[in-house]
Design a protein around this nucleic acid. Structure first.
Lengths: 113, 113
DNA sequence: TGTATAGTTAGCGACATGGCTAAGCATGAT
DNA sequence: ATCATGCTTAGCCATGTCGCTAACTATACA
């Protein structure tokens, strides 16, 4: 339950852009070089490269250069902190419901008197 | 499998800020007025109000004014598109592994000849 | 060696974001 | 009626983001 995790900032920010999500979508099917990643997007290479670096900084993609080609690969584990955060939220929320339940139960008991 | 869902943009963007996540954390425990939401953050009210409107636009928080107090409530259902997106990614990823599996199987069969 | 290919870097412009102060408005308490 | 409270709006400033072009480097191929 980190108070404010900078990594979550990077992660959510990385996912907040449709182009980056499209790139991830492609990479989830398997590794690809930068050019193929840019292909269907309609954007220029420098733009794609910038998006790629955002994805890398978030840990969502790892890249490796082989000759003149940079191969990019999806890193699904990077999504874990996100699911963890969601679990935390859910627990808080359910805790709230429990407390509401306790409250109602208490009210019922009061009535019985 | 929406090609590019603008709502996901809003959702991920809303979650990419630590202050907003802190606000959600508070709200997951139960509704709160704006001032209480601002309290522990150290930020001024207008700043918090701006964050609040971002959360509202993402559907994560609903607010309602009662007298001069605005009560804010967490909307957990708003997180659904996010989990849906993650499921999509996971399916793609697992599909990839399956194809890899098929490939290996095929290689093995080739060897048997 | 020369040329095409794949990526990279620098830097520009438009716009969004995140913080603030100052001033305003509406409601509750006295 | 007055004052305190809780929010709201307008607007400023610094910084970040997202797209681009132009120019560059590095590898493959002929």
């Amino acid at each position: 339950m980190a108070k404010h995790d900078p990594h979550l900032d990077l992660l959510f920010h990385a996912l907040s852009d449709p182009t980056r999500r499209m790139m991830l979508n492609r990479l989830a099917k398997g590794p690809a070089p930068v050019t193929e990643l840019a292909g269907p997007s309609g954007f220029k290479l420098p733009t794609i490269l910038r998006h790629l670096s955002v994805l890398e900084e978030a840990g969502l993609v790892s890249t490796q250069k082989d000759g003149r080609v940079r191969s990019c690969a999806f890193q699904p584990k990077a999504l874990q902190p996100m699911t963890d955060w969601m679990d935390d939220q859910r627990k808080l929320w359910e805790g709230r419901l429990d407390r509401l339940d306790d409250y109602v139960t208490k009210l019922m008991k009061e009535r019985e008197k």
